[in-house]
Simulated assay, not measured.
Amino acid sequence: MIVYVLYGGQSPEHEVSLKTAATVMHALDTQKHEVYPIYISREGLWTGLGRMPEEGLAAEQLTPASRHADAASSLGEVLAVEFGRTGEKVVLPLLHGANGEDGTVQGLLELLDIPYVGNGILSAAMTLDKDVTHRLAGLAGIRQTAYEVVTRRQWDEDRTGVLRRLENRGLLPGYVKPATLGSSIGISRCENSAELEAGIDEALRYDVKLVVEREVIGREIQVAVMGNDRPKASLPGEFLHGVKFFDFRAKYADPKLRMSVPAEIPAAAAAEIRESAIRAYEALCCCGLARVDFFLGEDGLVYLNEINALPGFTGTSMYPVMWERTDGTSYAALIEKLMDYALERRHTQKSVSSVR
């Protein structure tokens, strides 16, 4: 089977995508598959690297310079040369954030009629937007912390009024988050009005819509979910980090970071978290995979934090480790399973469209 690996992208999470792609390509069975890496630069230029050699690619080979000056011509060459190959195909879109995890690339692949790993257009767009996730999870009856949405227009027109609204809602201490970014980029923890104002200014550098969430005192617990029509949830996991705010550096550069899988939490809480993860997965129309994050509060209650429709697959990522500890699925076998789910979904779609 021809396996295309899309990575890089224009999101601030570009470097995370590179780490994920390097790890995934190293794990792919080149005796079983023809692997074709496709790099998207920070400027949005697409470059096909040709068939990956069996020995893999060195780090410096992952980010080649494009021969094209604009995105359209670079994408046109990739469409004609790379995606024009004959044979069974599947795409691994290892792109985080906007223009990759938000349904845009998924829409392109739907037009090309090529199956791809992960969530479809609708679920990709909804899960990337923290505001939309909150709304749909609330409709599904899933407990969440208090939150408010702030737009750039609201902030520009009435900064004082926005601050008053957030403080009156009791959102301090709390977190200011860009609505459509991950990896803790642009997020600030705020304890007072001055920090809240600075946090909103910082987050608006990355997005035109923000969510401000009341802090939940407790532990952050993660669950890996996998599947299409019959999703299943892994054992819960927890990062042990010892910091108040689990920011980008703590996630990707802290040598003291440790995983606890399964998380050492009461059995009843673990069962509730796994059940709630599947409910959230289904409420957001997810398929293939997602990581669902919760808070286990000091009050003993479980609160949904967010859904990550394309969780990281780096060497320190929780998603593959949780499956290995749950049912023994290795990293390489997990990728094969996810590709199988992509092919299964495309088969189901074809069976429906053929009846129309």
Rank of each mutant, 00 (worst) to 15 (best):
V3M: 12
V5P: 03
P12S: 05
H14P: 05
E15D: 15
V16T: 08
S17W: 02
L18S: 11
A21W: 12
L28V: 06
T30Y: 00
I38L: 04
E43P: 02
G48S: 15
L49T: 05
R51H: 03
E55I: 01
E55A: 09
E55D: 12
G56T: 04
L57C: 06
T63H: 00
S66C: 02
R67G: 14
R67Q: 14
A69N: 14
L79P: 02
V81Q: 03
V81C: 00
G84F: 13
V90W: 10
L95A: 07
N99G: 03
N99T: 00
Q106T: 02
E110V: 11
L111M: 14
D113S: 14
I114Q: 03
L122W: 09
M126T: 03
M126R: 04
L128K: 00
D129H: 04
L136Q: 06
L136N: 02
G138E: 10
L139H: 12
L139S: 11
G141K: 05
I142D: 02
T145L: 08
Y147D: 01
E157Y: 07
T160I: 08
L163F: 14
R165M: 13
R165W: 12
E167A: 12
N168C: 09
R169G: 00
G170T: 11
L172Q: 08
Y175S: 01
P178L: 09
L181H: 08
I187G: 05
I187N: 06
G199V: 13
I200Q: 15
E202Q: 14
A203F: 12
L204Y: 06
Y206R: 05
Y206W: 11
D207W: 02
K209R: 15
E213I: 02
E213S: 08
E213M: 08
V216Y: 03
I217T: 10
G218K: 09
Q222Y: 11
V223F: 00
V223N: 07
V223H: 02
M226R: 13
M226W: 09
R230E: 15
R230S: 13
P236I: 03
E238F: 01
F239D: 10
H241V: 15
G242Y: 07
K244W: 01
F246A: 04
F248I: 07
R249K: 13
A250C: 11
D254P: 12
M259I: 01
V261M: 03
E264G: 05
A267M: 04
A267K: 14
A269E: 13
A269G: 04
R274I: 01
A277M: 09
R279V: 09
Y281T: 09
Y281L: 04
A283C: 09
A283E: 11
C287P: 00
A290E: 12
V292G: 03
F294R: 04
L296N: 01
G297K: 10
D299L: 11
Y303A: 00
E306K: 05
E306R: 05
E306H: 11
P311E: 03
G312F: 02
S317K: 05
P320G: 07
P320E: 10
M322G: 00
R325Q: 14
T326C: 10
T329I: 07
A333C: 10
L334C: 08
L334H: 04
E336M: 13
M339W: 06
R346W: 15
S351Q: 15
V355Q: 15
